[in-house]
Design a protein around this nucleic acid. Structure first.
Length: 421
RNA sequence: CGGGCUAUGGCGCAGCGGUAGCGCGCUUGCAUGGGGUGCAAGAGGCCGUGGGUUCAAGUCCCACUAGCCCGACCA
């Protein structure tokens, strides 16, 4: 994509209102636009990062047999009355119709997923079943804050699994947990898993996935080596003690809850009278698990966990683009034309190799300005094409994550750069 | 939902009783050309909304609305 054509340009001044790092950089870089408290438009650049995250999640959910669906946000009040959550869920948006009806705006989808699966399941042989979606959620938060990390409208992947035995649910629950660990690893963040209480969604246990960042809201006692952590609210251990799973000394740190998984038991299936007949003619209760990852929150948490004082440092798998080409201008028109042509060729060649490239083709801007943008936007690899680099018949390549610039000969061009990805 | 702060061109801000100003950005021209470059000329604002005080209100008072922060809350 040519940066000259991206309509959401970066801004030199950071938004005054945005205190949190993710909001500041995402807004300043033109990744998102705030519409109101807790509600954002995802602009072309930001949407690319969000889609990367979504696709990683999608692949891992598909890999454990999840079947993707898309469920409605506008939900029937009756279903919420059945589960008893219409009157007990304070964050529930209730929307009136011009008729005398009311609807729920889904903060989660148990009320849809449960009767949905019930509608199609005729035989116990069809279980287990796991369905998921990546969609928008609505929660009437008393206080939206922390940029995209706590919104009133946000993106989430939610999956619901149905089982006939506790053992089967336990096994699946564990598979999801492993899949989640893969997802966070692929997203380039350090995640810890804590045991948590089920909250209003479940009386049973659940696990939280905490991304380690100083911007986190939760205080943790965590193992620096493995994934063990305890929320200090319910911690049984203290910093300095040894990790029960690997023996490393535990430390205190902060985390953002980016995902959680629940054993819901029969809480929802009972509410809908969802039972199934087994091979002996007995009515079996259906056990249910639910598994959520905040997709938009995850993007925010990634920024919180991976940035410096100049801007974002996107982990490569979630970066909107892999390579950011910066073409520098020259007072000499012929030189500038050569530079542009070389940059242009690199741009097309890289794209032909399937590399995603952001090409800063703006002319008449100072080098510093372009470098500043490259740092702010934070693509993993920056390639400078200029009179100076071309004199050495090379491209200057620098990793956003650090290190000295390298000169990659033009002849090696695409291969040399692709090697770094 | 309690407490605090804020609201003035696209963004960041100043003005604090006498009919709107700066920086950045934008437009035009010339210069410059490797870390937000220089000079010049322009365009752009019912000063969040409603009420009040006053001869006169971005400027003082009240209410409301919105945003941010702290707290409470947070599948």
């Amino acid at each position: 994509m040519r940066y000259s054509q991206v309509f959401s340009k970066s801004s030199k001044t950071a938004p005054a209102d945005a205190e949190s790092v993710n909001a500041r950089y995402l807004i300043q870089g033109g990744f998102v636009h705030q519409e109101m408290a807790g509600v954002y438009t995802w602009l072309p650049l930001g949407l690319r990062a969000l889609k990367k995250v979504e696709n990683i999640i999608r692949e891992e959910m598909d890999a454990i047999g999840g079947q993707e669906t898309r469920m409605p946000s506008l939900q029937p009040k009756e279903a919420w009355l059945k589960t008893g959550r219409w009157d007990t869920t304070d964050i529930l948006f209730k929307v009136p119709s011009q008729t005398d009806r009311e609807y729920a705006l889904g903060p989660s989808h148990e009320e849809i997923a449960t009767p949905l699966v019930q509608d199609y399941l005729i035989s116990y042989k069809d279980l287990p079943v796991s369905i998921y979606q990546i969609a928008t959620k609505f929660r009437d938060e008393l206080r939206a804050k922390s940029g995209v990390m706590r919104g009133r409208e946000f993106g989430m992947k939610d999956m619901y699994s149905f089982h006939t035995t506790q053992d089967d649910l336990d096994q699946y629950y564990e598979r999801v947990k492993q899949a989640y660990l893969k997802i966070f690893a692929r997203c380039g963040v350090d995640v810890k898993v804590t045991l948590a209480s089920g909250g209003i969604f479940s009386k049973k246990h659940s696990h939280e996935f905490q991304i380690i960042t100083p911007a986190g809201e939760d205080l943790l006692i965590a193992c620096p080596k493995c994934i063990f952590a305890e929320n200090t609210e319910v911690a049984t251990r203290k910093a300095g003690e040894s990790c029960p799973s690997c023996g490393t000394e535990l430390i205190e740190t902060k985390g953002v809850e980016a995902a959680n998984i629940f054993d819901l038991g029969t809480r929802y299936t009972d509410a809908f009278g969802f039972k199934i007949t087994d091979d002996k003619g007995e009515h079996l209760p259906i056990l249910m698990g639910c598994y959520g990852i905040g997709t938009t929150r995850l993007v925010g948490a990634i920024v919180e966990a991976s940035h410096d004082d100049k801007g974002i440092i996107w982990p490569k798998n979630v970066a909107p683009f892999q390579v950011h080409i910066v073409a520098l201008g020259s007072k000499d028109e012929a030189v500038q034309a050569t530079t542009l042509a070389a940059a242009e060729k690199l741009y097309t060649d890289l794209q032909a190799q399937g590399v995603e490239v952001l090409f800063d083709d703006r002319m008449g801007m100072s080098a510093g300005e372009k470098f500043g943008d490259a740092d702010l936007l934070g693509m993993p690899v920056r390639v400078v094409v200029s009179e100076k680099s071309l004199k050495n018949t090379a491209f200057e390549v620098k990793l956003r994550s650090g290190g000295e610039p390298m000169m990659v000969p033009v002849v090696e061009g695409v291969q040399g750069i692709a090697k770094l990805l």
